[in-house]
């Protein structure tokens, strides 16, 4: 049989699609919906979650992520510049910082800030802002270590000619960094930064280790508690869907930005 190459390729593709659809349909049909339905897709439990799951849980998750992201970013820029500095001690401090908080599980860092820091400073946790603030500080430390490396890579990816052009126009090293190098570095690292944002969004679920109040529950804690109270998994499924509603458009947006920047170059 001598099919044209494009026809053949099309044929293969249809076969692959058909197999995939068959697998999905089989999985859906063969699942035990009689059991799954009431346990994880229970409308009565779902209705009870509103509005709290949005107004408290989702809002808190977004807030915590935003605070940790901005804090981590600012600290990350500082660490990246320190790591690229010609001054030895700056480099050493930045390296130690990055290695420490990148090497520890986020959970442990948050725990350490929440419980060890207050004792070390010799005050009660409340005086340092309470568990929410301490937890967020922990998350910022984790975020800063990851972002510092990303930002450093971005800064180093900016061609040397850009610095030379800026310096030749009389711009100081500081102005060159601020107005020329960093803005271009950031364009390069938008995709990895989006990735950091998504990771942070999920890491906010670790804040529970320092303790939560009713008003400070984020999505995972909220869903887990609600799930226990109702002896039903529906809240967890709802939380999962809400996470995806935030993260998927975000990664799409990042891809779009990346394409737009590519055109600008």
């Amino acid at each position: 049989m001598s099919l044209r190459r494009t026809t053949k390729q099309k044929l293969y593709r249809y076969i692959v699609y058909a197999v995939l659809i068959a697998i999905v349909v089989w999985a859906l049909v063969s699942a035990d919906w009689a059991k799954l339905g009431p346990l994880f897709f229970n409308p009565e439990v779902a209705v009870k979650m509103f509005p709290g799951i949005i107004t408290t849980a989702l809002v808190n998750t977004l807030w915590f992520t935003a605070v940790a992201f901005v804090g981590g970013l600012l600290l990350g820029v500082l660490l990246a510049l320190m790591k690229l500095s010609e001054i030895g001690p700056f480099r050493w401090i930045a390296t130690a910082w990055i290695e420490l908080f990148r090497g520890l599980p986020a959970l442990l860092t948050i725990f350490a800030v929440g419980f060890i820091l207050p004792i070390a400073v010799g005050v009660r946790a409340q005086e340092l802002g309470g568990p929410v603030v301490l937890g967020l500080i922990g998350l910022i430390l984790v975020a800063s270590a990851y972002m510092a490396e990303t930002i450093r890579a971005g800064i180093q990816a900016v061609p040397k000619g850009q610095t030379e052009a800026a310096r030749s126009l009389g711009m100081s090293p500081m102005k060159t960094t601020f107005w020329i190098v960093v803005p271009q570095g950031f364009r390069i690292i938008i995709p990895p930064l989006t990735n950091e944002f998504v990771l942070l969004l999920k890491d906010t679920s670790l804040l529970f280790v320092v303790g939560t109040f009713v008003w400070s529950k984020e999505l995972t804690t909220f869903a887990r508690d609600a799930s226990t109270q109702n002896s039903n998994g529906t809240p967890l499924i709802m939380a999962a869907i809400l996470y995806l509603i935030v993260t998927i458009p975000l990664t799409r947006f990042s891809a779009w930005l990346e394409r737009r920047m590519a055109r600008q170059r």
Binding site: E164, L169, Q184, R187, R265
Partner: peptide, 20 residues
Amino acid sequence: IDRVRTRIGMVFQSFNLFPH
């Protein structure tokens, strides 16, 4: 040197315009 450089215009082989 920054001050002196403002009196010296420099043009590069690879242009080095700021793409952003």
